[in-house]
Design a protein around this nucleic acid. Structure first.
Lengths: 160, 160
DNA sequence: AGGCCACCTGCAACTCTTATGCAATTACTG
DNA sequence: CAGTAATTGCATAAGAGTTGCAGGTGGCCT
């Protein structure tokens, strides 16, 4: 769990220009730049892992924002294509910042079926062996690929 | 909700030998052959797609069986390795009959994010581009691969 | 600078799926 | 065919996700 937050200080204390940039991104997405939306966007910006609604609520538990508000903030960001909502198989939606450059989604995610740890697998690609009956979405890489198995830690632990 | 599953060739009218075979399978799994368990097992046997608990409840809504009973029936079948519980990413467990031959899971599954239809993709394999940080489970193919996207039908429908 | 109003928030309540405790019932064993 | 442990029915609950509504407010327009 590495938290290399650059500013090192409070979420709400980002430099004015970054804040302005976030406001701009929200408005370009057709969203008003409200305090909670700015904070959620900043949180996703800074997070190296996708966050669940519950985790976002936890992070902002000292703030006056309601869980429904944060929930709708997250959905708003997804609607405005500033974030993506993903499901890694543990029945909890997670939200991650949408990368500015289009379609970085093509790298698989590895999910440990025991500890639920998620890791990105840019070193793995799909190979089509036989092309009959391959959906067009696959051919066009408009897909999410999820690999489920035991991570090395849980794997060595389970080897009897 | 259109429900025309009033069984013409009724669920409960299977041939006696098939019924006996199912009873036998249940007992070999260490489970008593109760009416509801037999019916659930038969339903999974006959279904070509994985079914959720809610769908099973729907199918048997005319029967006197409680939803908790059907739920536990499904878990019992999984426990006895007569069925598998899978999660296709919509936070609803689905149950499918366990194939007799072991570990047929090595081919990817394609799941339509809209219609939830699942299809097998034996023509697709994983290719490791860079081998750093690849979990051993992946190297040893001890994994489930799930590809999520729009199936061709839903895809053409969504193209505006 | 100030007002307007559509968008946004807070609150409460709700759905849906999954899950469990307990008393009554029942499938199997002998 | 009775005894008993497994199973069921009912009630209930946790947890994530979702929504209706009344009141608040960001940002445009003057």
């Amino acid at each position: 769990m590495t938290t290399n937050i650059h500013a090192g200080t409070d979420m709400s204390m980002s430099t004015p220009d970054l804040e302005q940039f976030r406001k701009q991104r929200l408005r370009e997405a057709g969203l008003r730049a409200t305090p909670s939306r700015l904070a959620v966007l900043e949180l996703l910006d800074r997070s190296s892992v996708p966050l669940s609604h519950g985790e976002v609520v936890q992070v902002f538990r000292a703030k006056p924002w309601d869980r429904a508000t944060l929930y709708r903030n997250l959905l708003d960001l997804v609607r405005g294509r500033l974030a993506r909502r993903i499901d890694v198989g543990d029945r909890i939606w997670r939200f991650e910042i949408a990368t500015p450059h289009p379609h970085d989604t093509s790298h698989p995610h590895f999910v440990c079926t025991t500890c639920k740890q998620i890791s990105c697998m840019p070193g793995i690609d799909l190979r089509v062996i036989r092309s009959e009956d391959i959906p067009k979405a696959v051919q066009n890489q408009e897909i999410d690929v999820e690999i489920r198995g035991l991570c090395d830690i849980c794997r060595s632990r389970s080897k009897r």
